[in-house]
Write a protein that binds this DNA or RNA. Structure first.
Length: 339
DNA sequence: AACTTCATCAACCGCCAGCGT
DNA sequence: AACGCTGGCGGTTGATGAAGT
């Protein structure tokens, strides 16, 4: 017959934060009964607590239980949570059974305050684990007449990225936007990630490894070309400055866009090859190399080589991996790409 | 120093499934 | 089969402290 009455609705039952004394009373009562709780409904009265049974259960399971692990989540734990969430959704209690000493409440909180935001920053839907549709990220800006402005700011933001990898990743996403393949959300992810990367740091070797891990479809030629591109600008260790092979791109126009993006992304302090400051270069890119007609045309024609890697959705975790954790490291280590 | 905004997390609320009668 | 009770779950809130202005 509908809902059951709950002791929480009893008058005079205390709510709010637990005191140390209440904690002690609850723990002692449960220990006295050898850890056997019996009925939570009857427990408060038996223990001498002016609390609802539900509140006691919650306090015990989420805080007082002796096997609870406290402290920050490790990278492994975070990796596991993300993986399990992708499989199970918001089944926090089920997820909690896979993490020793962690409660569903703690995991839920950690998801909502840390992981969820992290994924959103990357342009990944924390619910579906897929890329967010463009309208959810930039209000459809990339699919609208405002495309040029978005690309302009994106290109300008490249100059603020610390490492060649970051610039490469953002560049890659911009290329997706330009060529119209998974365009908007990818470009948006680049924008979002660009703003969150400025404090990150990474060695060239790590960049190299991450680049391979992040782009599973990278072939050797693609990789070599990308690394050459990287080495030809920005703060990247000197490498033989091979020319970019224009044939890798779908057209000379696409190649031109890349070149100008590269120019635009050169550091302002600029020991790059181009003296022109980024905003000007970016403006040139937008006005000269990326007219809307060309964007539309690029979306329609077949591509090959480097551009092909843009046709498949690219997992983006490493976009924010450079900050701190082990999860992304594991992701990279699991990559089996040939050198 | 004072105020505001943001992030975190313990705790609450309401719903539901499962079990006993 | 219908009802009543309980424990458990997931969403949400609000207190608190930290960070920013």
């Amino acid at each position: 017959m509908g809902r059951s009455p709950c002791c929480c609705h009893d008058t005079g039952v205390k709510k709010g934060p637990w005191t140390e004394e209440e904690d002690r009373t609850l723990v002692e009562h449960i220990q006295r009964h050898g850890g056997h709780i019996g009925s939570w409904r009857n427990l408060p009265k038996a223990a001498g607590l002016n609390r609802c049974g539900k509140s006691c259960r919650l306090r015990w399971t989420n805080y007082l239980r002796p096997d609870i692990k406290r402290g920050n989540f490790t990278g492994d734990e975070e990796a596991l949570i993300i993986r399990l969430h992708a499989e199970l959704g918001n089944k926090w209690s089920t997820i909690a059974t896979h993490l020793d000493g962690r409660t569903d409440n703690e995991i839920k909180n950690y998801w909502n305050t840390h992981i969820r935001k992290k994924l959103l920053r990357m342009g990944v839907d924390p619910v579906t684990h897929q890329r967010l549709p463009p309208e959810d990220i930039l209000g459809g800006a990339l699919a609208s007449p405002g495309l040029h402005e978005v690309l302009l700011s994106a290109a300008a933001s490249l100059g603020g990225l610390n490492t060649a990898l970051m610039q490469a990743q953002a560049l890659q996403l911009l290329l997706q936007a330009i060529t119209g393949r998974g365009a908007a959300s990818a470009g948006s992810a680049g924008l979002a990630s660009a703003s969150s990367f400025n404090s990150a740091s990474s060695s060239a070797a790590a960049d190299d490894a991450i680049l391979r891990g992040v782009v599973p479809s990278f072939g050797h030629q693609d990789h070599q070309m990308m690394m050459n591109l990287l080495s030809s600008h920005a703060n990247y260790p000197p490498r033989p400055a091979d020319d970019c092979n224009g044939s890798i791109f779908a057209s000379s126009a696409e190649h031109g866009v890349v070149q100008q993006l590269m120019n635009a992304s050169a550091p302002v302090s600029g020991h790059g090859h181009h003296a022109e400051p980024p905003p000007t270069a970016a403006a040139a890119l937008v006005s000269a190399s990326c007219p809307r007609q060309e964007v539309a045309a690029a979306a329609d024609r077949p591509v090959q080589g480097f551009a092909d890697l843009l046709s498949e959705p690219i997992e983006m975790p490493a976009m924010c991996s450079l900050e701190d954790d082990l999860f992304w490291k594991d992701m990279l280590e699991s990559s089996t790409l040939p050198l």
